[in-house]
Design a binder for these strands. Sequence first.
DNA 1: GTCTATAGGGAGATAGAC
DNA 2: GTCTATCTCCCTATAGAC
Lengths: 184, 184
Amino acid sequence: MPARLRVLDAAAQRFVSQGYAATTLREIAGDAGIKAASIYHHYESKESLFTAVLDDGIAVMVRAFESAANAPDDPDRLLRHVRAHLGALFEHGPYTAAHVTAFFTAPPSVRTAVVPVRDSYELLWNNLLGELLPHIAKAQRPLVRLVLFGAMNSTIEWFDPHGTTTLDQLAELLTDQFLNGVAR
Amino acid sequence: MPARLRVLDAAAQRFVSQGYAATTLREIAGDAGIKAASIYHHYESKESLFTAVLDDGIAVMVRAFESAANAPDDPDRLLRHVRAHLGALFEHGPYTAAHVTAFFTAPPSVRTAVVPVRDSYELLWNNLLGELLPHIAKAQRPLVRLVLFGAMNSTIEWFDPHGTTTLDQLAELLTDQFLNGVAR
DNA sequence: GTCTATAGGGAGATAGAC
DNA sequence: GTCTATCTCCCTATAGAC
């Protein structure tokens, strides 16, 4: 595995678990098996390293969304997209998770650099929800999406993908609860 | 306003918006109108200052929960508790918000010190949901609570309490969506 | 492409005057 | 109760050898 990638992996891991400011380049370098100064051969600064992690995270989510969209006539279309989002969160390393746990620890410059990329992913979801739930007023669509995102993303704080509940089951539970509620 | 409280307020504000590690005692002191060294007359360390903020945050949430519980026969009992939680989040300063945005930037020692206090609040909710939704299996109760918490807490990242939607309306929307879902 | 060495700055925390 | 002064440590980043 090339050093540049080992550094990126280690950085994503550390940023997720400690936040941006609490993570030092020495720690990242140590995890990657090199010295801190060598990081600068691959990335020009700590900030650019974080930006690279976050950009990668969105790319994973967008790819997951798009492959879920490839079977448009599936009656469980929403379920498949929820599963894809959760899959990105839990099965593709800490890159996407960084958006949930570390984004708000990012310095302003990093935050603004990544916002447009995040927006593009959110737009995919707004359109999907508009298509699947046409009875919801357009103005309320982002709000409904934010609630769904809140429920999906918060799983990163408590769900254990190696526990008794599988990711498939979690996706079903979230989708059902989102569509039908918990009252019976 | 006593200096000890000005320091605590400033700390809560800074921790919420920047995270723990990115916040310096010099910034907090500046906001409170004193010098950094003077903080040590009121708090023994930066960590203890953060712990104080988080303890206060839980206390506000517990008080809000309890005053919502004072009318137990209200048919809109869940709504009132959701409203109370959101009220704690948006109307009682940044102390409660610190739990949502800054908790995971806390050093391990702070985290473990606050966990028992958080647990007590979560237990209140588990019991409430068990009472209101008896048809849900006991084992699934925490999961249902976590999804609800995810939806409620994520509002801190996007809801503007001074915008066109009021907190009352937001509470109604979240409660309705939680109970009945978005499908029609 | 990785290293050692180090510059330059800012952090948390302490000492002691007022 | 707040200040100034300062200690000590560790951070990001750079310079230059190999």
